[in-house]
Simulated scan of single mutants.
Amino acid sequence: MMLPWSRRAFAGSLLGLAACQSPIARMPDPTGLAAGDMAELLQAYAALGPKPLESLTPAEARRQPSMADAVKAVQRRRGMDLAPRPVAMVQDIQVQGAAGPLPARIYGERRANGAAPMILYFHGGGWVIADLDTYDASARALAAETGAIVVSVHYRQGPEHRFPAAHEDAVAAYQWLVANSRTLGGDPNRIAVAGESAGGNLALTVGMALRASPAGRPAHLLLIYPVADTDVNAPSMRDQENAKPLSRAAVLWFVQNYTRGPSDLQDPRLDVGRAADLAGLPRCTVVIAGIDPLRSGGERLVGKLRAAGVQTDARSFPGATHEFFGAAPVLQDAVVAQSYAGARLREVFAGRA
């Protein structure tokens, strides 16, 4: 096994950009651009005292407060009910990954006739932190907005399991779901794949790996502020360098703790927007946060998908930050984004796309 990179070697090796690009000027915290309920949520997150990820070990980072915790803090402040969004059924199961069983959770009603559409969902966390509980609200929202059975799947994480472990698990999880869809009450011909952040990157990997599969490609890809490339000098990496809850330094920390070395950063599964062939993918929906270092990568991905002939719907939320999608109980942009994503998925499941 390759030893983890040193911070100095990592910074100097990342696609060789440090050697050929001008230094990135320190920018003020751009989350000051957020207003209203987004600003309130960010203030609640700051009050929880999260430390910069780049100052922590992965074990320490996994114990950090999350934006999901900040949502609950705002709910308490407003005197709101903390009960999660209701769905017909929630059940913990295991699915088969590339190297063994993976924790998973089913949301939605099983149908005896096997007619329900299905969504395979991958959570975020930079392939290093977070779990099914952290992103419970997003999976519930997709089930409620679409009427589909949502299967949220965890995956192996770095640094214990480095690239391409999570990516291989994602493909294996989709293959498992196709094979077991009828047992779960779902339709194997109507399975969409969705993901947030690093999970959006995993959804892209599934789409690329299985676009010509005899078992059938996914019906749709929902990509919520996805990790779309490895360009650490993209415009949003500069102007959103100090954003919260995701900063440029945190992006580098995630990549350092998941990848094995510089060559991984040129792999089309990671550098999708610049190195991958996207022709033949199913229809895509892309949700972009404006206050997010990943914004430019998402915008570039939308252009590349459309240039490749992939029907692509996209919506940007300029005043929202990374991790906003699951915050619907306290954030209007999240309500709109969930409704938007749900409507696109319902169109596909109904055969109108």
Rank of each mutant, 00 (worst) to 15 (best):
P218G: 01
P245C: 12
R217V: 00
L223H: 07
V206E: 03
A209W: 02
K244W: 07
L222D: 00
A243Y: 03
A198C: 15
N201A: 15
L222H: 00
S197D: 14
L221N: 04
A228I: 08
D229A: 10
V206R: 07
A219D: 00
A234L: 08
G216H: 04
A198T: 14
A243K: 01
N233R: 09
A228R: 06
Y225F: 14
M208C: 02
A234P: 06
D229K: 11
L204A: 15
P235V: 11
V227D: 00
L210E: 10
M208F: 06
H220D: 00
V206K: 03
V206N: 06
G216L: 05
V206Y: 05
N242P: 02
A203N: 05
S236N: 08
P214T: 08
V206Q: 05
R238H: 12
A219Q: 05
G216K: 07
S236K: 02
T205H: 03
I224V: 14
A228E: 07
N233T: 14
G199W: 11
A243Q: 05
M208A: 04
H220V: 01
V227N: 05
A243N: 03
M237G: 06
T205F: 02
K244D: 12
R211T: 11
G200D: 07
A203Q: 09
L222K: 00
A228Y: 08
T230A: 12
K244F: 11
R238G: 04
L221D: 00
V227I: 12
H220S: 00
K244S: 15
R211E: 08
Y225R: 09
I224S: 01
R238A: 14
T205R: 02
A219I: 01
D229L: 09
R211Y: 10
G200M: 13
V227P: 00
A209S: 14
R238K: 12
P226W: 08
A215D: 13
N233H: 15
L204D: 02
L210Y: 07
P245F: 08
D231I: 10
G200N: 11
A198P: 12
H220I: 01
I224K: 02
D231K: 14
E241F: 13
P245A: 10
P245L: 11
D239F: 15
A234W: 10
T230L: 04
A243I: 10
M237V: 02
L210M: 07
S213F: 05
G200Y: 09
M208W: 06
K244L: 15
S213Q: 01
V206H: 08
Q240H: 12
A212V: 00
L223M: 09
S197E: 13
M208L: 10
I224R: 08
A198Q: 13
R217T: 03
A228C: 13
L221K: 02
A219P: 01
T205I: 01
L222I: 04
A198G: 15
P226G: 05
E241R: 15
P235T: 10
R211H: 11
P245E: 10
V232E: 04
G200T: 10
R238D: 14
V232S: 05
Q240W: 03
M208D: 03
D239C: 11
A203C: 12
A228N: 06
R217E: 03
A212Y: 08
H220P: 00
L223C: 07
D229Y: 11
A228F: 10
N242H: 14
T230I: 06
P218C: 01
L202D: 09
